[in-house]
Computed example of a mutant assay.
Amino acid sequence: MSCCQYGRRGLLETITRLPSQGWYYGSISQLQAERLLSNEPSGAFLVHDSVDTNSTTELFTITFKISNHYGSVRVDYAKGYFSLCIADPGLPLFKTLMDLVSFCYHLSTVQKRPVCVLTGQSGQTHNVHLYLTKPVSRHKQLHSLQFLCRDTLHKLVTKDKLERLPLPKRLLELYVSRNPLFDEQLFPCEESGWLDTDTLSQSSGSSRNSLALDTAGNH
């Protein structure tokens, strides 16, 4: 088997197995990812699609919580392997995204070593030692009935046939066709499209803590 074929096999395995991984939430925004981590301890993390980039190699993002702040590191896919998209993280290359996440979790929890060291930006002088110690699983959440119905539809009906279901067009476009891995009703925010104007106006003044990190940190 050639290196190219081996690489495609790893990518195919990743795409096939990802929906069953509890820590993977599909196409969600950074804000939604942070909402999911808001009640979790330091070291909590999840994986989602890199929806805010035009890069053809940065397919996924690991969003994490460290000391009540949030940050993210992109996952790069190139030449048949997955790796963290930072300069010299000191990690090996991985055939699948699951292998990368498993290695980082084991490094953090068993070996008690940071995955990498991220350097501060915007006047910050401290570095952040990244430990990924708690994958936040959507399987452990008590989901709404609407979400469970949508999840069942996506498991039983292929995407190309979803729009042909005998349901109102608005329901198909605004709910059925949305990301089946993310329950908006558990973690509502402005981007979900399901909040009324009164709720939006009340939440517009909320603040959030984010880590300003330079992803060119070294291990």
Rank of each mutant, 00 (worst) to 15 (best):
I15A: 13
M1L: 07
L172E: 15
L148N: 12
P114G: 02
I15T: 09
K79N: 15
E34M: 15
L46E: 06
P114K: 02
Q202G: 03
G43C: 08
L172Y: 06
G26C: 07
F64W: 03
D198H: 12
H106Y: 10
G7S: 06
I62V: 15
S42K: 10
L211H: 09
L172H: 09
T53R: 05
L18M: 13
L130R: 03
E173S: 13
W23P: 02
V157K: 04
T14S: 15
N54Y: 06
E191T: 12
Q121F: 02
A78W: 01
S203H: 04
P180F: 06
Q202S: 06
G120Q: 05
L211D: 01
R208D: 01
C85I: 00
P166C: 14
V128A: 11
T14V: 08
R17W: 04
L97G: 01
F94K: 05
T56E: 12
Y175A: 12
S67P: 00
Q32L: 09
R170M: 07
W23A: 07
S29K: 09
S108A: 05
L36H: 07
G205L: 00
G120C: 02
N209V: 02
D52E: 08
A33F: 12
H126P: 00
V110Q: 12
E173L: 11
K95F: 00
G7W: 04
I86C: 14
E191K: 10
L93G: 03
R208C: 03
N39W: 02
Y81S: 11
D151C: 08
Q146N: 12
L162W: 05
